[in-house]
Simulated scan of single mutants.
Amino acid sequence: MTDWHAPEDLVARYADGSLPDPDAWSLEKHLEACTPCAARVSRSVRATAAGAVLSDVRRTVLSDVRRTALATPTAPATPAAPHRPLPVPAPVPLPRIRVLWAAGPAVRGAWLPAALLVAVGAFVLAHGAGFAGARPLLLALAPVVPLAGVALSYGAHADPLHELAASTPSAGLRLVLTRTAVVLAVSLPLLTLAGLLLPSYGGPGAAAWLLPGLALTLASLALGGWLGLRTATAVTGGGWLCAVLAPALAPADGAVSAALTHQASVWLGGAPAQGAWAAAAALCAALLAARRTAYDRLERH
């Protein structure tokens, strides 16, 4: 329930389809939490020409369901069991349902096992194979792990209900940011903890990748308003890997660990580098805020 209720002229314009899309989306969002307004809008829509069509559709659906139920063979009767009252499940709070619906695609699929593989692989290289460049390698790969999670958490390729989600008032940048926050909440502590368990050999600290990872994630989101999330994450993540890993793979055998440590120190070590990443993150956040309306049309097919 809310203290504000939609005025009659707003309800009437919504029912006849003359209300602009931004106002309609705002009203629909209000209806999620206001039962009286939802009932008024429902009555108003039923009074229009569309109401008769919706009533016909409803009758047809109910009729089909009824015929299907009658045509389904029933199981043989069994002796009646003593009557016991069925347990009544506790209602799930609506905010929790919304969070699970919004965050779902961000924590399923191949991304989470891939993040675990990066962390466990670096640990095995350090303690099992004695590879001195395990932590710098982890620091080089860690910033692109959230990018992969973001790319795989939004769009028709990741969410079977994407078309439905994209048409709701909660879609657009708000939904993208919700799923991005879930990705970061999983990957940041996981990869930072993995870095703490690895020997440093004088390289950057285990948390040195956090600001670069945040900046690259925000850059992908800002660029996604033009290119789409998958293309934007491929551009930013690929550019990062080429800049950091490519020079480290060039030295002759035996110098890869030193080259990785040097590259990690150049890109991540020291206050100047971290300050530059912080400034880049703030700039990308400002650009994303300025381009937020682009996400109202993102991935809508």
Rank of each mutant, 00 (worst) to 15 (best):
T217G: 00
T217H: 01
L218T: 05
L218M: 11
L218K: 04
L218C: 07
L218V: 08
L218P: 05
A219V: 06
A219N: 02
A219W: 00
S220D: 06
S220A: 15
S220C: 03
S220V: 07
L221E: 03
L221A: 06
A222Y: 00
A222P: 01
L223P: 00
L223W: 00
G224P: 09
G224A: 12
G224L: 07
G224H: 04
G224M: 08
G224V: 06
G224S: 12
G225L: 05
G225R: 04
W226V: 13
L227G: 07
L227F: 11
L227N: 07
G228T: 06
G228Y: 02
G228W: 02
L229S: 14
R230I: 09
R230L: 09
R230K: 09
R230D: 04
R230M: 04
T231P: 03
T231D: 10
T231L: 13
A232R: 03
A232Y: 07
A232H: 05
A232L: 04
A232G: 10
T233A: 14
T233Y: 06
T233P: 04
A234S: 13
A234R: 12
V235Q: 02
T236D: 00
T236F: 08
G237A: 14
G237Y: 14
G238N: 10
G238H: 09
G238Q: 07
G239M: 09
G239D: 09
G239T: 11
W240P: 10
W240F: 12
L241Y: 02
C242F: 11
C242P: 00
A243F: 13
A243I: 15
A243C: 15
A243Y: 15
V244Y: 07
V244P: 03
L245W: 11
A246I: 01
A246L: 14
A246C: 03
A246P: 01
A246V: 13
A246D: 01
A246R: 02
P247Q: 01
P247D: 01
P247E: 01
